[in-house]
Design a protein around this nucleic acid. Structure first.
Length: 637
RNA sequence: GCCAAUGUAGCUCAGGUGGUAGAGCAGCUCACUCGUAAUGAGCAGGCCUGCGGUUCGAGUCCGCACAUUGGCUCCA
């Protein structure tokens, strides 16, 4: 008799030793069909595994993230089998699940994207066969014998911990070394696609064998796959590098790799972002400062950057003195702090800086506005007493929430704790980490903890925003720093008339303005909300005689701080409208004789709606309101 | 930085096997003066990324450099 306890604490007894599948079926056949694996003692196991003693059990279903991972891992096996069916000489290495799908690194002749179709067809056959995945435990000797023709697998087996059980998985005729677990049978892979091929090295070591890495993705149902494919295509269309060129926002030049050039229209958006930032920060009690871009080596030695960050820094020699262009704003901020003597009454002190920093990122890592070498951080350093950590961090989280919401961006939070290599005492770390944690708890949104992922100088909270396509981006971060106040000997006078060391946090919300800009372009697909649009209204005179009148209107609208343009080309109205629509100008004003005579406006919005006979006041009032209130998608008229 | 692919007009792209460049859009000119997503005709626009090499001859072949793009942590 075996007693099984379910997550709801109900207990079911089985006469004979059941498999996980038996237990799942005892709930219902429908449930069992949806089950992928089971969890016992926090270990994921195959459903066809037997349960030989009384235990608590939970099931992983197709609806769980873990279930999807298992499916994708199994998909990697199916892909590997398909490759072997076609390329008999190929040798498998490893095939893990990654954030967006799975891959398998295979030692084989290079293939091209055109070859993926044949592999997909082969995979379909395997999936249709609904082959079950069978686990088998073998001795090291047996394993070495089975994989004697595959040097990679032999290396893996020999590297395994002696105590570790060696398991094989077989589906159909295909056997692979694998820890598992796997889905019950290949038929559960309802939607899959092979995405790309790239080169990779065995053990990520350039001196080792060059392998072919085949990427794929799979889902429990076809609809999700289609949705995913649609998302990828949509992301391609929204690529901020293409839109930046099309909308005349920014450009990149060989003469300054990784250092974007912003055009007039791009700067309109840029400045609007900054105006908004300044407004919110001022309201939140920040002051703004500015420190130099290039500073003497001595400062970088004092801050520790010379020692820890030098390979990423641009340096120069001037009058026999060594200088570095700042990769971070903090050391300059430290000098600012030291220009005054502070009392505990001055704290917390919230000091902002839109600082331009340069970091020599690897050439291969550069990508549009997302990964650059020169960028602006919306930095701020907050100096406080140790007992202010919680409330200050909370204030930053609330500020972040306010700002991201303005763009329609949701986010999630991650707390990273003390890494192995770190400075500071246990007590300092505990106080700091608890401060961040209780701020997060008071903030009230659930958060993830990445143990040991903090910086060597302190714990941090990362803020990951989610864009319109559901992609996440780490933008904001709140980092507590125990190093710099020490290195720069920052102090404040306490109530006790003694010197104390302030606690400092670095924080950014946009992160990199360049990157945030790029994210917004893709988030809005180039269609900025009215308040952000580089050109908010375009005037289209129907014929040349009306051009002067259009200019006059433009001047008038500009007095209301509405960004306008006039399209004076001798083109048809249709053509001008088309171009304005393609440039995503939110307000398109056609100017004909009727409008001139009646002193009204005809407004076309991007949805194609046209409203005629609007008085200037009835246009300016709502438009100004939406610009001022920075509304997102609300209809203007 | 490493691997691979790519680099032709402002933009998007054509240019088998080597014989000194082509389209569409944008621009300019002219005509048209138009009522809600492309009016027509013409003109102009290129050290084919750069530097070397092979060749009688290189956008095309080779090497190097630069840049762009995609990969390069995820463990059996």
């Amino acid at each position: 008799m075996i007693n099984i306890t379910f997550p709801d604490n109900s207990i079911k007894s089985f006469e004979n030793i059941p498999t996980g599948m038996d237990v799942a079926k005892s709930i219902s056949d429908g449930f069992a069909r949806n089950c992928v694996a089971m969890k016992i003692d926090d270990r994921l196991l195959d459903l066809n595994g037997q349960i030989t003693e009384d235990t608590a059990i939970s099931f992983i279903t197709a609806n769980d993230d873990e279930g999807l991972e298992i499916l994708r891992h199994s998909s990697a096996h199916v892909m590997a089998e398909a490759v072997l069916n076609i390329y008999a000489e190929a040798k498998l290495t490893i095939g893990p699940v990654v954030e967006d799908g799975f891959y398998y690194d295979i030692d084989m002749e290079p293939i091209s994207k055109d070859d993926l179709g044949a592999i997909e067809d082969e995979m379909k056959k395997i999936i249709k066969a609904k082959n079950t995945f069978e686990r088998q435990v073998v001795s090291k000797q047996e394993a070495l014998e089975i994989f004697k023709d595959n040097p990679f697998k032999l290396e893996i087996i020999n590297d395994l911990d002696e105590a570790q059980e060696i398991s094989l998985y077989q589906n159909g005729k295909f056997i692979d070394l694998c820890r598992g677990p796997h889905i019950p049978h290949t038929g559960m892979i309802k939607g899959f696609k092979l995405l790309k091929i790239s080169g990779a090295y065995w053990r990520a070591d350039q001196t080792r064998e060059q392998l072919q890495r085949l990427y794929g993705i799979s889902f429990f149902d076809k609809k999700k796959l289609n949705k995913y494919i649609h998302m990828i295509e949509e992301a391609k269309k929204r690529d901020h590098r293409k839109l930046g060129t099309k909308l005349d926002l920014y450009s990149f030049h060989d003469e300054a790799a990784g250092m974007p050039f912003f055009h007039a229209k791009g700067i309109e958006v840029w400045n609007t972002l900054l105006d908004y930032w300044r407004e919110e920060h001022k309201a939140a009690g920040y002051v703004e400062t500015k420190t130099p871009v290039m500073l003497n080596r001595k400062l970088w030695e004092q801050s520790g950057h010379w020692e820890n960050y030098r390979e990423n820094m641009y340096t120069s020699v001037i009058d026999d003195e060594e200088y570095a262009i700042k990769p971070m704003n903090c050391p300059g901020g430290m000098l600012l702090y030291k220009t005054k003597a502070y009392s505990y009454r001055d704290l917390p002190l919230r000091v902002g800086e839109i600082g331009m920093v340069h970091r020599h990122e690897l050439s291969g890592a550069l990508s549009g506005l997302f990964r650059v070498r020169a960028f602006h951080q919306d930095d701020a350093h907050i100096f406080m007493t140790p007992d202010q950590i919680e409330s200050e961090v909370l204030r930053v989280l609330i500020l972040a929430k306010v700002i991201y919401s303005r763009f329609g961006l949701n986010f999630h939070l991650e707390l990273s704790t003390r890494p192995k290599k770190s400075i500071g005492s246990d007590e300092q770390w505990e106080n700091a980490t608890n401060g961040l944690k209780s701020a997060l708890e008071r903030y009230g949104q659930k958060f993830f903890i990445n143990e040991g992922d903090g910086a060597f100088y302190g714990p941090k909270i990362d803020i990951h925003i989610k864009d319109a396509l559901g992609r996440t981006w780490q933008c904001g971060t709140v980092q507590l720093d125990m190093s710099l106040p020490e290195r720069f000997d920052l102090t404040y006078k306490g109530k006790d008339n003694e010197k104390h060391r302030p606690v400092m946090i670095h924080r950014v919300i946009y992160g990199s303005l360049e990157r945030f800009f790029g994210i917004l372009v893709e988030h809005f697909a180039g269609k900025f909300p009215l308040w952000l649009a580089p050109v908010q209204a375009i005037l289209l005179p129907i014929n040349q005689d009306l051009a002067d009148y259009a200019d006059q209107l433009k001047s008038e609208l500009e007095t209301y701080q509405i960004r306008c343009e006039v399209d004076k080309r001798s083109e048809t109205l249709k053509k001008k409208i088309r171009d304005a629509q393609l440039n995503y100008v939110p307000l398109i004003l056609t100017i004909g004789d009727k409008e001139k005579e009646t002193k009204t406006l005809s407004v076309r919005t991007l949805d194609g709606e046209v409203r005629m006979g609007i008085d200037m006041f009835d246009f300016v009032a709502p438009v100004s309101h939406h610009i001022k209130e920075r509304t997102l998608n609300e209809p203007i008229f």
